[in-house]
């Protein structure tokens, strides 16, 4: 029916012709080019991303042998997930890491963005400085912080010493190391989030503030009554993205703590364990089960965030 409407002068006789007409609805040659243009991407995504998801799920049911051979062991790996205390510790570490680093980074980023979102001198210089950690290789960031945190010769304990405080062993004390990593994570993420918040703030129409000024609202009350509510979509976006990437923390722990550190048990993250099992201990089956677990956790948490957003995110 539809086809007739497009070009009513052509009668529909039989199937092959009908097919030809259908093509015409999409434009001559368009179909050919569309498929040619998406082909490289779809092929690559399929080979390197879609197929691996299924393969990982399959691997999560096998046990890896020394020579890359593997055998089906059913739910063994998943049972191991339940009993592996290292993994439970890693999940706890990762949760602590997320719960502290994500909200604190968002809070500080909003603070910096709000301060920068006015006519002040040196705006570009501030922006550049705050952004510097974002473009710096995490491996190098970890290295310099290891040095700053050094208990004997580190700048941090030296500064504390000037205040006659004896600084702790930041990276080797199991009670402290995780928090030291979290501080660095916040330090290196503020710049990125600040830029996103700054562009969110610039999207808020100045007429709101003018109206509030006429009503006699002060700076603080304007911030709470106008800025924050109108910024909630951006906060939500940054929150979801930060959470997903915080679940995958690896570089900082691998480079700053490392496997030989006595504090590794109290700092290692889920992905650190995934790497350790999968690539240094060649337990690729069990590592796959951890990857599947991580995927499920992230899906659930993201889903909950999506559900909760209705309660606090204002789409103006």
């Amino acid at each position: 029916m539809e086809i007739k409407q497009v070009s009513p002068q052509v009668k529909v006789h039989d199937n092959p012709k009908q097919r030809k007409m259908k093509q015409r609805r999409y434009g001559r040659g368009d179909l050919f080019w569309a498929y040619i243009m998406i082909a490289p991407l779809m092929l690559g995504l399929f080979i390197f991303y879609v197929y691996p998801v299924f393969q990982t799920v399959y691997y999560s049911f096998v046990e890896w042998g020394a020579f890359g051979n593997y055998k089906w062991t059913g739910l063994d790996n998943y049972n191991k997930l339940l009993t592996d205390t290292d993994l439970h510790r890693a999940i706890r570490n990762t949760v602590v890491y997320i719960v502290l680093s994500v909200p604190l980074s968002i809070f500080l980023s909003i603070l910096v963005a709000a301060l920068l979102n006015q006519k002040i001198r040196g705006l570009t210089i501030y922006r550049t400085l705050y952004f510097l950690p974002v473009i710096t290789m995490p491996a190098a960031v970890a290295m310099v912080w290891r040095w700053l945190y050094n208990a004997d010769y580190g700048l941090l304990n030296y500064a504390l010493g000037l205040l006659s405080i004896k600084g702790p062993h930041w990276l080797t004390d199991p009670n402290i190391a995780l928090y030291s990593v979290i501080l660095v994570a916040i330090w290196s993420s503020i710049g990125n989030n600040m830029i996103i918040f700054l562009s969110g703030l610039q999207g808020i129409s100045s007429s709101y503030y003018e109206a509030a000024s006429i009503d006699g609202a002060g700076t603080i009350s304007k911030f709470y009554r106008i800025t924050l509510p109108l910024l909630t979509p951006t906060i939500f976006f940054v929150g979801v993205i930060s959470l997903i990437s915080a679940f995958q923390v690896f570089d900082m722990i691998y480079m700053m703590i490392g496997e030989k550190n006595i504090a590794i048990e109290s700092t290692q993250s889920i992905v650190f364990l995934f790497y350790k099992y999968g690539f240094t201990q060649n337990m690729k089956g069990y590592a796959s089960a951890i990857a599947v677990l991580l995927f499920v956790i992230i899906l659930i948490v993201t889903f909950i965030q999506m559900k909760l957003q209705k309660k606090w995110v204002h789409y103006g």
Binding site: L45, F48, Y49, Y51, P52, T56, Q248, A291, I298, T302
Partner: peptide, 22 residues
């Protein structure tokens, strides 16, 4: 299909990608 890839954390691809490279 392409978008659904975005939802998956990178570690889920790693072992099969490594096997492909091998």
């Amino acid at each position: 299909l392409a978008l659904s890839v975005l939802m998956v954390p990178g570690q889920v691809f790693l072992i099969p990608q490594y096997m492909i490279m091998k």
